[in-house]
């Protein structure tokens, strides 16, 4: 039977601190590549927004600000519970770690549910590019471009959320099996980094898609 302390420290590292710092550095570098992935899409949005401002304001006015704002709040709550999950791991509180991980997952699923409700509403309003899009008028092509970017960017974000759900499921299982303690919780910590990063992406998506046409809403 191997020594549990030896299991915590892989042979290529001198100290547990070095091992932990290396894992975190790796995750941060991955997050930077993700910034580049989403960055290209944010760039595409900026260029089209500059080229067709009227159509993009019009498209933004068709967003549901209520669902969008609620979703932003839900995701911020999930980031808060994720931060508390990492805190519980840090203090070696395994029960609360499970509670907060599951709370984070539930909030993530609520977010996805609301997101797909929005997609369905856009579909019913014939605002699904290439599937069912009929808007007429001089701007219709540019408006379609707005929705192409909307579905592409929020869709890619939703895929990241699904991946996050999978990662958190793995963390719940590993915690249940007793893999984590106050001495070793690096996987929980870097899962948290991923989750918070996905939250940051949404914060920007909310800002660029939902807000600009808001003053055109008739309340």
């Amino acid at each position: 039977m191997a020594n549990p302390i030896a299991l915590l420290l892989r042979e290529q590292y001198s100290t547990p601190v070095q091992q932990r710092e290396t894992s975190k550095l790796g995750m941060w570098i991955f997050i930077m590549t993700e910034i580049m992935l989403f960055g290209g899409l944010f760039l595409a949005f900026s260029v089209y927004r500059m080229s067709f401002p009227q159509a993009f304001v019009k498209g933004s006015a068709d967003m549901s600000i209520v669902l969008g704002s609620i979703n932003t709040a839900v995701l911020i709550c999930s980031s808060f519970t994720m931060a508390l999950a990492v805190y519980s791991a840090e203090t070696g509180n395994r029960r609360m770690l499970t509670v907060f991980l599951i709370a984070t997952m539930i909030l993530g699923l609520v977010f996805l549910g609301i997101k797909f409700t929005e997609y369905y509403q856009h579909y019913l309003q014939h605002e699904a590019p290439a599937v069912w899009f009929d808007h007429t008028g001089p701007d219709s092509g540019h408006l379609e471009m707005f929705f192409v970017l909307y579905f592409l960017m929020t869709g890619l974000h939703a895929v990241h959320m699904l991946v996050g759900e999978g990662i958190l499921t793995a963390m719940v299982i590993r915690n249940h099996r007793g893999s984590f303690s106050a001495d070793y919780y690096t996987p929980v910590e870097i899962s948290g980094l991923y989750w918070h990063f996905v939250d940051i992406i949404w914060v920007f998506l909310f800002a660029i898609f939902y807000v600009e046409g808001l003053h055109l809403h008739k309340l």
Binding site: T72, C77, Y87, A207, L214, H215
Partner: peptide, 20 residues
């Protein structure tokens, strides 16, 4: 963490209100 969370909610509300 709690203050960060409340700050984020406040900023979200201000984004929505400013949009009008």
């Amino acid at each position: 963490y709690l203050f960060t969370f409340l700050g984020l909610l406040g900023l979200t509300l201000s984004t929505t209100l400013l949009g009008f």
